[in-house]
Design a protein around this nucleic acid. Structure first.
Length: 120
DNA sequence: CGGCCCTGACGTCAAAGTGC
DNA sequence: GCACTTTGACGTCAGGGCCG
C-alpha cells in the first residue's frame, strides 16, 4: 500500500481515509484486501438472461438483498476491527510521545541548571 | 455510470457496573 | 436483589469514493 510521502518513521499507523481527507496529513488505514471468497452458504445467481416470472424476479431481488446485507455485515465487522487496531495504535503512540516529552522536559531542566549563572 | 466497498450514524441487545 | 446506567458488539442504512 503506497502511503503518500509521510516521512516520519513511526507514521506507518493507520487513519481513516475520509478523516485523512479532512485533516490532510494522516495516512489511511483502509487496506483494500484482495477480493475474498464468499462466506459459506452464498450461492451465486443462476442463469442470467433466462425468462423471469414476477416471482422469480422477486426472489432474485431478495437474494441480492440478502447477499448485499451479508457482505455488508462482514465489511462492518472488518471495519470495526481495523478501527480498534487504529485506536490501539494511536494510544501506544501517545504513550511513547508522553515518555519522550517527559525526557525532554527533564533534559531542559538540567540544561537550564547547568547554564544558569552562579550567584555566590 | 453502475456496482462494489468502506465507514459514520443510528438503533438494538446483552453483559457488566453502580447506587439503593 | 433490583432498577438503572454504561459499555461493547452487532446489523442495517445512507452516502461517498473507487474502478471497470
Amino acid at each position: 500500500m503506497a502511503v503518500t510521502g509521510n516521512e516520519t518513521d513511526e507514521e506507518t499507523e493507520l487513519a481513516p481515509s475520509h478523516m485523512a481527507a479532512a485533516t490532510g496529513d494522516m495516512p489511511t488505514y483502509q487496506i483494500r484486501a484482495p477480493t475474498t471468497a464468499l462466506p459459506q452458504g452464498v450461492v451465486m445467481a443462476a442463469s442470467p438472461g433466462s425468462l423471469h416470472s414476477h416471482q422469480q424476479l422477486a426472489e432474485e431481488a431478495t437474494r441480492k438483498r440478502e447477499l448485499r446485507l451479508m457482505k455488508n455485515r462482514e465489511a462492518a465487522k472488518e471495519c470495526r476491527r481495523r478501527k480498534k487496531e487504529y485506536v490501539k495504535c494511536l494510544e501506544s503512540r501517545v504513550a511513547v510521545l508522553e515518555v519522550q516529552n517527559k525526557k525532554l522536559i527533564e533534559e531542559l531542566e538540567t540544561l537550564k541548571y547547568i547554564c544558569s549563572p552562579k550567584t555566590d
